[in-house]
Amino acid sequence: MTPTEPSEERASDRGVEPELTDNPTGPTADKPPLDGVAGRAVGPNATTDLEKTKSEPERKLLDPSTDLVTGDQSIRRSAGTRTGMFGVSGTGDTSGYGGVVAPIIYPGDAQRPYGGWFDEVADALEARLTSTDLDGAIERVVVHRGEITFHVRRHDLPFVAQMLRDDADLRFEFCASVSGVNYPDDEGREMHVVYHLLSMTFNRRIRLEVTCPDADPHVPSLVSVYPTADWHERETWDMFGIQFDGHPSMTRILMPDDWPGHPQRKDYPLGGIPVEYKGGSIPPPDQRRSYS
């Protein structure tokens, strides 16, 4: 969790103590000047803010001294950063570790063989996709904690789902769940839709994941393949604002019809509790003093 490159402008911007590091040269040796922008420009990583956030984990992968890389050699992808040893933001952190900046890293692509029946499913799916000229439909595969996730290219989702449902070697007859996840820091892929499919024939479960940018929140609907996705997609629209093209009635389901905004998005505040005592109110949990 310790970045080896101490040139994080965030740390210097805040003027806090250097983070813990096992880099023998010490963090202060090549620390940029306090005007972080200028300091960054002369460094070897003269990138924009956004690029920097994204490129950090790749850079770290090359350095075996960090504890980010485990032995499985899988490439990981990042979505945002975490500041402070205790995850505290703003006030309240008197620990001195407030300047620690660590990337948030999700499990990366799995390499063949995936193990067990994962390979059978992947082979059968690949064979079907190749025969229908949809080679690139599976962007990548993640195997983590005994669950396999296929990241599907957005516009190919209905075809892939149809194959998964109908192919004699796949037979994912049952769409258990559809849920949205909002990764505000996953640039260009802020909105994710996650499908959990179940094959009762083979007793297997897989997960499909589709992403779309926040600027273009459209994902093809799966109602034509799995009618059960009807309400699940409506809920995902209601909560995240992801529009499912081809859905028979894309309306709100849990919130009132005239509700503004989509509550489960990360930029939607939780809201406080009004207390009728001299105008005071209890702030929402993320604005209270916190230790985590």
């Binding site: 769940s177 849920s179 996840v181 959990h196």
Partner: peptide, 21 residues
């Protein structure tokens, strides 16, 4: 019937997303 929790963690002390099927 099938009750499932789709849990997403970002490595923090709180769920990044919890969805219940």
């Amino acid at each position: 019937g099938e009750l499932g929790a789709h849990l997403v963690s970002d490595g923090g002390t709180r769920p990044f997303r919890a969805h219940f099927r």
